[in-house]
Nucleic acid binder design. Structure first.
Lengths: 228, 228
DNA sequence: ATCCGTTTCATACACTTGTTTGAATTGGCA
DNA sequence: TGCCAATTCAAACAAGTGTATGAAACGGAT
């Protein structure tokens, strides 16, 4: 029964921390939701901060288990790999059904990393990052500079994460119909993959779109809002 | 001298709220930093919440004034317009010199909108959104579906905002040399513009890159991690 | 110099915070 | 049954929270 309360607290604390943040959450609120005594948190976890760290770790673990890393058959093309990768990230960010509280928790950590973040970043972000780098290796020329690779990776991840990050904002802009078909995970993955593959192509074969690439090469001359 | 204290509080409150969030910030901390009495906040602003809202509005106003909306000459090409647009967003997000606290405040609002956000969103986000839509109008075929336009816009904005959002994370991944040359605002704008223009092209003229577009059209067959 | 509205200040108030304490309760084992 | 460690509980703790109060200080107009 001891493990029962411990687990109940851990499970209840996640959504609450995600919703209100660390400072905005009170131990009493958690205990009330878990239907346990206020002292339980200190007994089982030692304090609020430890509980928070363990909660994040727990959320991360569950998230990782529910949406395992992208995998593909050996003969998959890089484009297929990228699609699988993007789908995985989107699933992890947006969850199935409602936008998950776990990702909200992770977004908070992204905005202001705490001890909980540093503990988890190595095994949550790094692998994804390396996986993406691997995919890009096959899509980009061998002589592509390192920072270009990095920025392309950021461009891809940024597109995915934005939908979680600015979730409420996106809702306001497109006007409510969030879980509508064009914004399903599959469609979003399709869009981001297509957009990114074309974007990568813009770097990979420089000769392809001369009209546009000339236009945006030296455009800073027209910047009317260039401050000093 | 009354306006003096009011302004001093307003100016001091910004970075503190940005750093610690609303709940994590105490009135006493702000007053100590502004070197005024604790009662001043209630006298001049009526309460903590009102102060916060006014602080966000103030930060937004300053930000908008320092980095005005993108503008261009009438004969600018859409590509040039996009570059100017991206540069403006990046400047607003990343600030000049250090990553500004104002944008940190706005990111918090993005993650969990408060009254302060709703008050400001209409005049801060909307205009940018409309401006981007206008640019895309010229880059996309007239029959492009609305949700495709929207998602392309999100793809562009997402790339920009990510560098602010996941600032600390980006730092960890690229290993510290943040303000290095390849990550200057100009270079980032150049990259995102080029990437996005090529990405848009992938939608605009479907015939251009048949090898990739066939590959990523029906890739879900290989998704080993597809959890119903 | 005197007055009066505005602004500051020290102080106090009620309340919530995380944490502690020591007694009560539980549940398995001899 | 009786014991003991583990767990729960109500109550209390000190510290910190936002806010309110009423007296003091200020500063220009009479």
């Amino acid at each position: 029964m001891a493990d029962d309360t411990r687990l109940r607290i851990l499970r209840v604390a996640g959504p609450i921390f995600a919703e209100n943040g660390y400072e905005g959450t009170t131990i009493r609120e958690i205990c009330a939701a878990a239907d346990v005594n206020v002292a339980s948190v200190n007994y089982h976890f030692g304090g609020k901060e430890t509980l928070y760290v363990e909660t994040v770790a727990h959320a991360y673990g569950e998230r990782l288990q529910r949406v395992p890393p992208a995998a593909w058959s050996p003969e998959a093309t890089p484009a297929e790999q990228l699609h699988a990768f993007v789908t995985t990230i989107l699933k992890r960010c947006l969850g199935e059904g409602d936008v998950g509280w776990e990702s909200r928790l992770l977004m908070r950590e992204m905005l202001e990393p705490t001890d909980a973040c540093r503990m988890v970043i190595g095994e949550y972000v790094r692998p994804q990052w390396n996986q993406l780098a691997q995919i890009l290796d096959r899509l980009l020329p061998a002589d592509t500079e390192e920072h270009v690779r990095q920025q392309i990776a950021f461009s891809i991840v940024g597109q995915c994460v934005y939908y979680r990050m600015a979730n409420e904002l996106v809702l306001m802009l497109i006007g409510g119909d969030w879980q509508s078909d064009p914004y399903s995970i599959e469609r979003l993955a399709q869009h981001i993959t297509q957009f990114s593959l074309a974007g990568i192509h813009g770097f990979a074969d420089p000769g392809k779109q001369p009209n546009l690439r000339q236009a945006d090469r030296v455009p800073h001359a027209v910047m009317a809002n260039d401050i000093h």
